[in-house]
Amino acid sequence: MKYIKKYSYYISLTAALLFYVYITEPLYSFSEELISNYRLQSKRLTKTEDLLDKAGMVGEELSKAQNNKAAMEAFFFGAETEGQFKLQIQQQLDQLFKQSECRLDTLTWLEGDVLSENIRQWKVKIEFQGSPLCSIKLTRLIEESTPSLEIEHYAFGGQNWTGVISEVLNGEFTINVWRMRKDS
């Protein structure tokens, strides 16, 4: 008993240290871990909720893009082969010349540019003859046509033209056309 009183401070200090090392410190570190896990999970939840909100917006944007793509495809020629594409252009131009009552002299294919993986631009040079009225009709029909034809360059001329509507003009157009390759 005498030793217990003598070493009571040491025993109480040892008990306090053992209590701290084996009970208090593990509980504190466990509570800190729980708090950090809670914060991490709440951040993840917030990010997930934000992503779900954005997924709705992305879905809307995707549907708008698909609608725009469908509307845009009407302006491109969609033949599967180059030969079919050129035939479509020639048929459309023949039809436009018949409607405008002009006479097609020559149609020449010029080198085209690759605009993207699926889109290629071609140039067509056309020489024709007709009245000034037919030239105006032809210009308007080309610009209004669908799939789209774009006049890049034009020239009109005639010999001894006096301004009479029935006189013959020579004309030349360079037209841009676009082909969109179909996805296989």
Rank of each mutant, 00 (worst) to 15 (best):
M1L: 09
I4A: 08
K6H: 13
Y9G: 13
Y10H: 02
I11R: 00
S12G: 04
S12I: 03
A15V: 00
Y20R: 04
V21T: 06
V21A: 00
Y22V: 07
E25M: 04
P26W: 01
Y28M: 05
S31K: 15
I35S: 11
I35L: 14
Y38S: 15
Y38A: 15
L40A: 10
Q41D: 09
Q41I: 09
L45T: 10
L45G: 06
L45I: 11
E49K: 07
L51I: 15
G56L: 13
M57P: 14
V58F: 06
V58M: 13
L62C: 08
S63G: 06
K64T: 11
Q66M: 08
Q66K: 15
N68I: 09
A70M: 08
F75L: 10
F76H: 10
A79E: 06
A79V: 04
A79S: 13
E80Q: 12
E82N: 12
E82F: 13
Q84D: 15
Q84Y: 10
F85M: 04
Q90Y: 11
D94A: 14
D94M: 09
Q95A: 09
L96G: 05
K98G: 05
Q99K: 01
S100H: 03
E101G: 12
D105H: 02
T106R: 05
L107T: 06
T108M: 09
W109P: 00
W109Q: 02
L110N: 01
E111R: 06
G112W: 02
G112C: 07
D113L: 11
D113G: 07
S116K: 08
N118P: 00
I119N: 01
W122A: 15
K123D: 10
K123N: 12
K125T: 10
I126T: 12
E127H: 11
E127Q: 12
F128H: 07
Q129R: 14
Q129S: 13
P132G: 11
L133E: 14
C134I: 03
C134H: 01
K137W: 01
R140D: 14
I142T: 06
E143D: 10
S148E: 09
L149S: 06
E150G: 03
I151T: 09
I151W: 02
E152H: 07
E152R: 01
Y154N: 11
Y154F: 13
A155Y: 08
F156T: 07
G158D: 05
G163H: 06
G163D: 12
V164R: 12
S166I: 06
V168A: 11
L169R: 09
N170D: 12
G171R: 04
E172S: 13
I175R: 02
N176E: 09
V177G: 04
R179T: 04
M180S: 09
M180E: 12
K182C: 13
S184L: 11
